[in-house]
């Protein structure tokens, strides 16, 4: 149920983001979604891709240091209050979120949240108990293509 997220260290200067994305494009890896965390000195590119094992290989071969972490994708209603409901629910259960990013789907009236929990294992249990709509890797690929 958990998704694999790849993270890549980037220096904060022109061209740094283009290179890994281009490397993946050349190998035909599809990026489902991404987020970029930035500080004054460096950035962390976080990627959800259709084939994480191959993507990791491609990036490492090209010399990037790749971090692999577990994230959970949750489908929410794409309307005012959709995100708020989920967050309130999780907060009520004392689940800590490290960071999240989201995107809306072209079809359905759904949005997808990618959430990095402090403790993915127990957070996932809470999410499932509360009957939230967890999206796994295959479903995500199907939804965005």
């Amino acid at each position: 149920m958990k998704l694999k997220q790849l993270s890549v260290f980037l220096e904060n200067r022109p061209g740094q983001l283009a290179a890994p994305v281009q490397a993946l494009a050349q190998e035909g890896v599809n990026i489902l979604t991404l987020s970029l965390a930035d500080t004054t000195e460096f950035g962390i590119l976080r990627l959800i891709v259709d084939d994480w094992e191959r993507a990791k290989d491609v990036l490492e071969q090209a010399g990037w240091v790749v971090n692999l972490s577990d994230v959970v994708a949750i489908g929410v209603a794409d309307r005012p209050g959709g995100l708020s409901e989920v967050l309130t629910l999780l907060a009520g259960e004392g689940v800590n979120i490290e960071y999240l990013y989201a995107f809306a789907l072209r079809r359905d009236d759904k949005a997808i949240l990618i959430i990095r929990f402090e403790d993915p294992e127990s957070a996932l249990q809470v999410v499932l108990d509360k009957g939230l709509h967890v999206v796994d890797g295959d479903q995500l690929v199907a939804l965005v293509s």
């Binding site: 993270s7 971090n67 990095r116």
Partner: peptide
């Protein structure tokens, strides 16, 4: 240089 041993997806951890 950032190494695999210390690299993390979390900004806080890197800081």
């Amino acid at each position: 240089e950032v190494t695999a041993e210390v690299f993390s997806d979390k900004v806080r951890a890197l800081e």
